[in-house]
C-alpha cells in the first residue's frame, strides 16, 4: 500500500511532509532493550562463579538454556515491535489536510484527519537537553474541528514545520475563498 492509497490522496493534493518521531527517540528505547539483553550474561557469569554445577546439571543445564533462549527471543521481538510501533506512527501534511496516524500495539490503529481550513493556531516547542541538541520537539495544532488539538510528538525541526504549516493554511484559505 503506497502513501497515496494510505491517505486516499486527492487529485490536486500534494504531500508536503511525511513525519515520524525523531530517530533518537527510537534509539533511546532500543538502547534500553539492548541493556536488557546483557542481563542474562551477567546472571550467567554470577551463576557460573557461585553455582557451576547448575550450568552443567543434566536437568538444570538444558532448562537454563531454554529459559535463556526464550528470554532472548522475547527481548528480540520486543525490539522489533518497538521499531514497528515507531515506524507506523506518522503525521502527514498535505496541501489540503493533516493526517495523524497512530499505531497503538498490534491491533489498535487510529487515523485522524483535519482539513487545513480548520486550523486555528500552531505552536512548536522544544523542551529538554536532548531535544535541544538533536533538534526535535512537539508541534501543537489548535483546531476548530471536533478533535480540538492535534499533536505532532517529538518530530524533527518543529519550528520549520510550524512555519510551513501556517503558510499552507494561508494558501488553502485563499484557494477556498477563490472557489
Amino acid at each position: 500500500m503506497k502513501i497515496e492509497s494510505l491517505i486516499n490522496q486527492k487529485t490536486n493534493e500534494k504531500v508536503i511532509f511525511y513525519l515520524r518521531r525523531h530517530v533518537i527517540v527510537f534509539i533511546g528505547g532500543a538502547l534500553f532493550i539492548v541493556l536488557m539483553m546483557m542481563l542474562p550474561i551477567g546472571a550467567w557469569l554470577l551463576a557460573n562463579a557461585n553455582f557451576p554445577e547448575l550450568m552443567t546439571g543434566e536437568i538444570s543445564g538444558p532448562a537454563i538454556v531454554l529459559l535463556g533462549s526464550a528470554y532472548y527471543l522475547w527481548i528480540w521481538l520486543f525490539l522489533f515491535s518497538h521499531f514497528v510501533d515507531y515506524y507506523l506512527d506518522a503525521w502527514v501534511i498535505t496541501t489540503d489536510r493533516i493526517l495523524n496516524i497512530e499505531q497503538e500495539g498490534l491491533f489498535n490503529r487510529t487515523v485522524s484527519e483535519l482539513d487545513l481550513t480548520n486550523v486555528q493556531d500552531v505552536t512548536s516547542e522544544v523542551h529538554g537537553i536532548l531535544p535541544f541538541f538533536f533538534g526535535y520537539g512537539n508541534v501543537f495544532i489548535q483546531t476548530a474541528a471536533e478533535r480540538g488539538r492535534f499533536i505532532f510528538e517529538q518530530v524533527p525541526k518543529p519550528e520549520e514545520i510550524r512555519k510551513r504549516l501556517l503558510i499552507l493554511v494561508d494558501e488553502d484559505r485563499r484557494r477556498q475563498n477563490q472557489e
Binding site: M1, L77, Q103
Partner: peptide, 22 residues
C-alpha cells in the same frame, strides 16, 4: 508455546509493515 507465540507476533508485525506502506 513461547516459540509459536513469538512467530505469530513476529508475523503480525511484518504484516503491519507491509500493509501500511512501510
Amino acid at each position: 508455546v513461547v516459540v509459536v507465540v513469538f512467530f505469530i507476533v513476529a508475523l503480525l508485525n511484518v504484516y503491519h509493515l507491509i500493509h501500511y506502506s512501510a
